[in-house]
Design a protein around this nucleic acid. Structure first.
Lengths: 217, 217
DNA sequence: TTGACATGAATCACTATTCATCTATATGAA
DNA sequence: TTCATATAGATGAATAGTGATTCATGTCAA
């Protein structure tokens, strides 16, 4: 997918050297775009800004990407894959509740590390989807990643229900929805506070309320 | 605030009639804008679309509003006030938990009735704020309304804690945050399903999980 | 006849994208 | 090793599309 984005390089001795260089440019552009998009949002970000941030000329961007949108999608795609990877890393934890716990922690840690991108990724998984969905239809790829993540969570919840760890008088969907909501809420609030380095630590509150509720025993 | 938006009408005998007419135009424009913004989003909505929907010429819009943004803010403002009103209506319920319950139901009912505007209002109270905040800074007024609503909720939560109805080993802020998150989650999911008429009914699940948690007793 | 105001074509601003050029490097003959 | 030439690809000025906003004009009620 990434490969088809630009003219195929001619086969030659130069190949290796050129590729190195091209890859570096590509990388620089993506990183710059991530910074700029993260700072001012997709709409407000100007290609000129991205070019400046990357230290290249505006025209150069188009030697590596077809359009602004393609750059955006590349970012979403990359970040989405990384995010998904964080989930996969804990897929094998046997105990359902422990798995959910691990998922949440992994997700929060990822958020915390890439705060600026929040509105493009995690957010891209719902929030931005609403705020901007009509502005640019989201990359299909990113949606897939999103769905798979929801899927992993739902599976864990289902397993927990099956294991008698979670209530069975509510549907798995409802439980998953709520879990997701609590997660969003924390990230939301954290983002609003300016992304201080305390997000990961708050998972405990999330799980506590999700599992035990807010009512005084 | 609304009054300062256009040239002051001259005092004259026509006044009454003119005002009537002007008010009608203004109203039509706002309603049209609400429809169009709700349908395609602020960014994608064209003034020409709004004009067409309102059945007036594009230029006419500018006889009533300074700019596209001002129209948007007027909508947010109006909707925000209505939304806030729904909360105020239950402010006097004594029992804190009952008050929270009433708040949630009122909010959901409002959502359900104005689904199309979701992303401009309730959403405008957080979700869109992130998705688009850099695209157009939100109206100060709307932010105020938002804050006041959060305030009302937080007060109810605090009262519940004080009354021994909610846990006191978590901060009021944390509890409120979670409540808000659960609310968002439901509306989110509902919106994604295409706004079917079942939102209000789901408040029970929300409160159930918030109060009792998801763990199997 | 006059003034308020609706009209919509013309203007203006903003940017993504294109493209004619220019630069730097690689190649290969001397 | 050195120089002439070719070429990938960097450059940024020019283009082009979009759509908000303006304004000269026409209409209608008083």
């Amino acid at each position: 997918m990434t490969a088809t984005r630009r003219k195929k390089p001619r086969a030659s001795v130069r190949e290796t050297v050129r590729l190195e260089t091209r890859a570096a440019y590509r990388q620089a552009i993506l990183e710059a775009a991530e910074v700029v998009f993260g700072r001012v949002g997709y709409q407000s970000a100007r290609m000129a800004d991205v070019a400046a941030e990357a230290g290249v000329a505006a025209g150069t961007l188009y030697n590596y990407f077809k359009s602004k949108e393609e750059i955006f999608e590349s970012i979403l795609e990359r970040a989405g894959d990384e995010f998904y990877g964080q989930f996969l890393a804990h897929i094998n934890i046997e105990d359902p509740l422990a798995r959910i716990d691990a998922f949440m922690r992994a997700a929060f840690q990822f958020m915390e590390e890439r705060g600026g991108l929040f509105s493009l990724i995690f957010a891209g998984v719902g929030i931005v989807e609403w705020g901007e969905q009509r502005i640019h239809k989201r990359s299909t790829r990113n949606s897939e990643v999103h769905e798979r993540i929801e899927q992993l969570t739902a599976e864990a919840v289902a397993a927990a229900v099956a294991a008698g760890q979670l209530r069975d008088d509510l549907s798995v969907d409802e439980l998953t929805e709520m879990l997701r909501g609590l997660t969003d809420a924390l990230v939301f609030a954290w983002y609003r506070r300016g992304c201080p380095p305390d997000l990961a630590a708050r998972v405990d509150v999330l799980l506590d309320i999700f599992l035990n509720g807010a009512r005084k025993p």
